[in-house]
Amino acid sequence: MNEIIQKKFKASDYKSKLKPVWCPGCGDYHVLLSITQALTKLQLKPENTAVISGIGCSSRIPAYTNSYGFHTIHGRGLAVATGVKVARPELTVIAAGGDGDGFSIGGNHFLHACRRNTDMTYIVMDNEVYGMTKGQPSPTTDPSWDSALSPGGTGLSPFHPLVIALASGANFIARTFSGDVKGTAKVIADAIEHPGFSFVQILSPCVTFRPDQKIWKEQVHEAMVSETDDPARAARRLMSDDGFNTGVLYRGSREAYRFSCGDEKGDMEEIQKQFEV
């Protein structure tokens, strides 16, 4: 968490001048807006925030912010983000990417990032498809969704990100809909402020390869029940989750990953004594 300062930053201060490559109508525009609004709400200095992503349409997001950014390689955003946070604990670190990036090729990092509970926020723009490679099923895709790569559907039951996050130890778990910019911005701000690993699944439609997702805006609904700090209750709620419940599900109190960077002043002379016989 970096310090809050007097001067008022506007949302535009958190945006870069670069024009996104996204298709018109892509849900990711809204996510970008929500992130900049969340940062405005928190009044974080742009230079003290690092946005780190993998590869995919959604992973293009770092360069569209005015933060330090790292557009890494497919699936590895969380690993790079972990390195940044451990090296520079005073920075606000936001990892971001798509469902293919985070749950398929980067799935192992997702499990272990939840488990490690490093103090950062992970935003997955879930469009239930591989957008950048032009429409293949991802781990969250419906089993019957037809595509060139998997004609007739994959027949595989979808991955449930919130269940996995909860089971793996994430400390803050939420789902939002990209079209609800204000609501998403608030959740992201909460996620950033919450210690430990915060995971936000944002349902972010791909208008190009999943035009059927247009009805998402009618399907999403605020969860009937309020958030909990009890993992067992959160788990029970997920049992009846239709995938369109939005809001914060779980806010845990597990201690964030601790690491020791020791004493800067230690010297090599002392260390080399262990080799002297």
């Binding site: 790292f70 890494t72 590895r76 390195g83 451990v86 090296a87 272990h112």
Partner: peptide
């Protein structure tokens, strides 16, 4: 993860 963590820390 290890190589990419190292890259992240170095970026930092």
């Amino acid at each position: 993860a290890s190589i990419n963590m190292a890259i992240g820390a170095s970026f930092g």
